[in-house]
Design a protein around this nucleic acid. Sequence first.
DNA 1: TAGAATGAAAA
DNA 2: TTTTCATTCTA
Length: 459
Amino acid sequence: MPPSRHSDAPRRSRRISNIPVRNYDEEGFEVYEPEAYSPRHASESIDASYSPHPPPSPSPSECPSLPPSPDEQYTASYTRRASDDHIPRPPNAFMLFRRAWLKRQEHTERDQCKISCMVSVEWNSLSSEEKDVYRRQAHQAKLEHQALYPEYRYAPKARSKPRVQKKRVPRSSQEVSRCKEVAERLMRGEILDHGLESGVSLARSASPAFVGPSLSLSPSVEVKVESPEPELSWDNLYPQRTPATSTSFPVVGHSLQSHSAVDNYTADVELQCPDVVSSEVMDWDAVGLNSFVPMDDIPPIHLPAPALPNFVAPAPLPAVKEESEPESPYSPPRADSPSLPSNREIDNYFGCKHETYNLEPQQTLFTNSSGYPEVSSFSNNDQSEYSYPSCEAQTSTWYEPGSSSYEPGPSSYHANVNFEPADTASYYPQHEAGLSDNQTDFNDDFLYELAQNNPAYLY
DNA sequence: TAGAATGAAAA
DNA sequence: TTTTCATTCTA
């Protein structure tokens, strides 16, 4: 069956996604129902469905049903003119990849030329094994095509009119680098809404970004807020973010999230959002996105934060976190939030960390060059000479808020604050002996006496 | 209907 | 080697 195109009718674009399945449109386009496609490869999420199935309800002889390859199945999702005997070519690997790319990406880019450019960047970044997935699909498509149209022979036609030489004009280096950057950032998942053209995704990005709270352990926490990172797009690769602005959020919950055995603590702080964020916040958004969204199009932004109706004075933290049933996702998110503990309680949790060292009488505890406590070595190598009982010395390490992270919740902000060592206490037995820090020449009697009679001092 | 990509297939 | 055409859809 030679391929031919019906008369000189212009070819129509095939907008597969909008065509009802197994129907003819008013222009005689025939539609096929796509079936599932599920490759085993890492690109499993990619729907690369394609199959040159014949018109609907064909007889078995007209439409042999080929078994799927061991590796993958693919199925039909294409149209051809019912009144046209044109037989399209089977797609090659890149075409299948491009189709899958279109379905996979969450983008709003409409310019197919730019999409092609980005797809090519990603295609060329694939390993041979990754490309093999699509090569196998293309091979399978080819086999099915041959089975469906055994007499088909590709016959490209010379154009009747001399066509303008299809220009493979090299894109400008700037354009190429831009294309590459957009594609690479897409691959890294940085660009979620490529080609943003309206305020549709504004609500998604309306939450103020969190820079880091300075946890004051008081009923309010100062939070730096800056504009959300503006959407990246082809035309806006380097969106500017407005500077951070401080605002205050009341603390409605405060709980110990984890206790590291080494050197830091984590506090889970729940911050209560105001009912309605001031217009300042809206301005931050607008400034960050005004290259895409006209001010007039920005709706009033209400952060999803219904304030607690009656804020009760903080109650002590529960002493022990008991295991409880997993929370229903529909349970009131704020009702059981732990209340703000007192500073004393917080100190008990975060105030200091003790480390205990076993000391022999001639050992000392000192602060090393790194600022950490260290036990000195024996001055006499023959430890058997010493029959003194060992004693314990302890240092106290104070903690203060360190790094922090931000986690938006349905009705509040959670700030995770890590407590890190602020300073390391030092213990110098030399001081007891009236010696300078560098002197270690104190006698055994002194050390023994110190250990026996002043253990409390060591703590 | 050109265009943007890659690759198969034919001339 | 050159050309067409598979896909997709906006301009």
